[in-house]
Structures are given as structure tokens and as C-alpha cells.
Design a protein around this nucleic acid. Structure first.
Lengths: 64, 64
DNA sequence: GACTCTATTTATAATTC
DNA sequence: TGAATTATAAATAGAGT
């Protein structure tokens, strides 16, 4: 989905893995938010980076 | 991202909303799985449809 | 390491079957 | 409904900053 095609397997290069994590995490959060709004769905998404940092999204109807 | 552009707001038509829910839920789950594999991240995704049905995904490292 | 850019791949809205 | 198709919008891989 970009200049080249990639296989879905662990990215060995650390820098590349971190860049991809940052980009795809943003995309995933955006799509989660869109699904919640478009379809009136209730959802929660929790992501931990490999360094242990936490990122999350929860639709407003979710228990927080 | 399809034949036409849509605004990110609740889809009023019930049939269309259910179809969109099914498609986007699948896409979101796929992207969650890819992020977990590509970036060695730990994540969990929980989705409730407006009818109360539950769908979830958790990477293998997640506590279940 | 967090930005931008853009050629491509991918997801999906509308449609057809 | 429900599954496939297809034209198009959106995400993103790789490169450059």
C-alpha cells in the first residue's frame, strides 16, 4: 500500500519498524473512530508499543 | 474510498449502516492484526455492534 | 524520531448479480 | 438479504528533510 509491497511479518529493521508503528497506529485509531461514528458502534482499542508505551481509543459510549 | 465520498457521521439508512459495519469491522480487524505482526506490538480491539453483538481481536501476547 | 511527499497498494462505496 | 465486482477514495512504503 505504498511505493512497494510488504509481507505481513515482523519488520526486523528497528527504525523502519518504529516508523511503521507510528503511521499504522494513527491509521488504525482513525478507522476505529470512523467505525464508531458511521455505524453507531461501541468500541475500544488498546495498543502497546514494543517499548511498553500505551495508546488507546474508546468510543464515547464505552465505559472508561 | 469507494465509488463516492462519504462524510464521517452516523449512517441513517439501517441497511447501509449494517453493510458498512460488517465491511469496516473486517478491515479494522485485519489492520489490527497486521500492526501486531509487523511491529511486534501488543494490542486488543473490542467492538460491539449497535445490536449488542461482540467482536474482538487480541494479539497473542495480550492477556486474555 | 517526527515531519513531508507521492507513487502505489489497499480499503471500500456504490453497484450488480 | 448476501456475495462478488469495480471505480474510486484513502492509507501507506519508501525516500527525502
Amino acid at each position: 500500500m505504498g511505493r512497494g509491497k510488504i509481507a505481513i511479518e515482523r519488520i526486523d529493521n528497528t527504525t523502519n519498524r518504529q516508523v511503521t508503528f507510528s503511521k499504522r497506529r494513527g491509521g488504525l485509531m482513525k478507522k476505529a473512530r470512523e467505525l464508531a461514528i458511521l455505524c453507531d458502534a461501541d468500541l475500544a482499542l488498546i495498543v502497546f508499543s514494543s517499548t511498553g508505551r500505551l495508546y488507546d481509543f474508546a468510543s464515547s459510549r464505552s465505559v472508561s
